[in-house]
Every structure is written in C-alpha cells, then in structure tokens.
Amino acid sequence: MALAVVAGAVYFRAGDDAAVPAAEPVSALQSGVSGSSSDGSAGLGGTSASASASSPASASPSSAKAPAAVGGWVPVDPAAWKAQVDAYAALSPDPVPAGVGNLAEFRADCQYSHSAADDPIVFPGLPGASHMHSFVGNKATNAATTPSDLTKFTATTCKPVLDHSAYWVPTLYDAATNQPVETTGFRVYYRTRMNTSTGQLPMPNGLRMIAGDAKKSVPTPRGSQGQFYCAFYGPGDLDGIARSTNGNWPICGGDATLHFMLAFPDCWDGKNLDSPNHKDHVAFGANNTCPKTHPVKIPAVTFDIQYGAKGTTAGYYLSSDKQGASASSMHGDAFIMWDQTTMNKRTKNCLLQRRTCDDNGYQQ
C-alpha cells in the first residue's frame, strides 16, 4: 500500500481502490478523545467527547471536558483502519456460482430484541434519557454500550451471527390502545447505490450513524415522502386501500402489512467514527461519486422494517412524536460492529463484484 499526499492530507492507496483518507493525528483533535483501540477491534475510536459542530481540528481542549452525552468527534484508529484496508486489498474474491444475480448487496436479517428508553449514540451513559426505542441485533445494547462492548457481548437477533452491530428505531404505538407495535422483520441491507463499484471499501467497525429526523413533525398523507407503506410479496397499493382518520397512516389490504424503508449515507470522511450531530462525518453520494469532503465509499445501509400491523382508523404514533401522530419523525440508528473478515469478504464478493448476496453469502 502506497502513501500519497493530497492537499496536505495523507491518503492510503490500496491497489486500484480509491484513496482512503487517514485519520487526523490525535494531536490535531480535541483532548480527551482517544485515537487508539484497547481491545484490538479494527476501526474503534475512543469514547465520545463533546465538541463544537466545527471540524475536529478547531475544537478547543476545554470542549472535550463537557458531558459525553452531547456527543463529539470520535476519531478512527488510523492503524486499525489501515490494517483493515490492507487486508481487504489482499483478499481475493470467492468464485461466483452459476445463477447468482447482479444486484450489488448483502444483508443481515434481524428480529426484535428489546425496548428501552436508551440511546448509546445520542445519550451515551444516560439510561432512560431518550424516548423509547426498539432494538434489533446485539442483545446487550443499552445506554452504556461502547464499541468494545459489541465485541465482548455478541449474542444477536441477526443472521449472520457474525454481525454484532446494534440497530434501533423509535417504538411504534397503536393510537387506540397505546400499546407498542413491535417489528416482525428487520432487514438491514448493505448496498451500493452507485453504478460503479470502483473504490468500494468496507465498513469501519465502531461507525455510528443516524438517518432521519426525530424532531420532524409534519403530516404524512397519501403519496407523501417519509410515510409508512403497505407491502407484501406481490402487487398491491403501497399507500393502502384506506387511511387513518388523520390521514397519516395507511390501512393495508389483502396480505400486506406496514413497512418502512430508511436509507443511510454511503460516503464517509475517513477520519471520524462519529460527530457532534452524528451526521457530519457521513454524507450521501451523488452522480455516482462521493463528495471531496467525504471521499470514502462505504456500503449504503438501508433498513427495511416490517410490522405485523395492517393499519387502523385510529392510526399510530411514534415515541419520538406522540402529539404529531405522523410518521415524519421516523429515524434510525446504526452502531456498526462486524467480524472484520466477514465484512471484508461480503464487501468484496457482493459489492465490488456487484453480485446479489443474502445473509449467508452469494444468493443462489
């Protein structure tokens, strides 16, 4: 792997892969944030510390002393990330069996695990500080969960079991009974949304991301963006055969039930595993490329969430917006932690080669 210097930044080059920005030196980051991993988990950064919403280099030392609950810049361990990229570059793809499709994706198929008013990304170390969340994946996830916890406590509701990640969304409630409506299926896709896989790299372990806006409160009528929809394995009316009294929720016909799709960014700054607002370190690509500020092409995570409910005239509400009683505050959190070899192999086999994979590898 060669080194290159572009505009004052150090980049690793792995064969034909796109340049991967190295993490900024720890000395350039606010004090109190560790840039190394104590447990050997590739990509792990230190405990989240508070910082301003500006870049890490501009954060003052005093800002690192603020409560960790407000978030902060968490730098990637540059040595661990370089080691993962080196291993990925050296990995030869597995032969593709006959009949495998060319939809570039792999996935984890998960089930509901537990609910808690916790959020280890937004309110780390503060149990009960969040609205209620429904968790899937790593069974040990709580407010105190750290990257190293995800490697130590690996029991999961996902397949493959080598996905130790934690995923969560606000809990859905039936407006008539105020009872929770939990997910009956939770598929996490890792895809490429671009027409080319040049420069595709795997996920760094310890990456935290949030998609959606928990504070948004606007109506979600028929045909609107960001609404729940009706789906089944067959034709049907995505908007439902009818709507709730307030118009914000579909009522599904036939065998269809409520679903929601939530897309996460597919480009990373290559430097930070988290940021003060949990979004600035990642970005969405456009025109089949990543922006210069976020040059690392990572798998595009998408939640495909299924609920057993069919819809009612009373409708529903989310724990993040009880009064609004619409779907607009739907959001999701992803705390990434895979067996590194498995992540590297799935990324190379399925995304770089643009082949269809399921939760067990090539889909045949």
Score class of each variant (00 low, 15 high):
Lys345Val: 08
Ser34His: 03
Lys297Arg: 14
Arg222Val: 14
Pro25Ala: 08
Gln340Tyr: 06
Gln306Leu: 11
Gly199Asp: 02
Ala144Thr: 12
Asp359Trp: 08
Thr198Gln: 10
Phe186Met: 04
Pro78Ser: 02
Met203Ala: 03
Asp94Glu: 13
Arg346Val: 11
Ala49Glu: 05
Ile298Ala: 01
Asp237Ser: 11
Thr192Met: 05
Ala283Gln: 14
Phe228Lys: 01
Gly332Ala: 07
Gly234Phe: 08
His133Leu: 06
Tyr173Ala: 09
Ala116Leu: 12
Thr154Ile: 14
Phe12Thr: 10
Leu150Ile: 09
Pro124Ser: 01
Ala309Lys: 07
Ser52Lys: 09
Lys152Arg: 12
Leu29Phe: 12
Met203Lys: 02
Pro95Tyr: 06
Asn288Phe: 07
Ala4Ser: 11
Asn205Asp: 06
Ala256Gln: 12
Ser148Arg: 01
Pro95Asp: 04
Thr289Asp: 11
Leu201Lys: 09
Pro124Trp: 00
Met261Leu: 12
Trp73Pro: 05
Thr257Gly: 08
Thr156Trp: 04
Asp17Ala: 14
Cys350His: 04
Ala242Gly: 08
Ala42Leu: 15
Thr183Gly: 10
Gln306Pro: 01
Ser48Ile: 12
Ala334Asn: 03
Phe284His: 09
Ala334Ile: 13
Thr177Pro: 06
Gly32Tyr: 05
Lys215Val: 07
Pro75Cys: 04
Tyr11Ser: 05
Tyr173Gly: 10
Pro56Arg: 06
Leu351Asn: 04
Met343Lys: 00
Tyr317His: 13
Ile121Ala: 04
Ser319Gln: 01
Gly247Asp: 00
Val33Cys: 01
Phe106Ala: 00
Ser27Asp: 13
Ala300Tyr: 06
Asp359Asn: 14
Leu172Ile: 08
Gln363Val: 01
Asp359Ile: 04
Ser134Gln: 10
Pro78Val: 03
Asp280Cys: 07
Tyr190Asp: 00
Gly40Met: 07
Val169Ile: 15
Pro147Leu: 08
Ser60Phe: 13
Pro276Arg: 06
Asp119Ser: 13
Met132Asp: 09
Gln323Glu: 11
Tyr362Pro: 08
Tyr173Trp: 12
Thr154Met: 07
Ala327Cys: 09
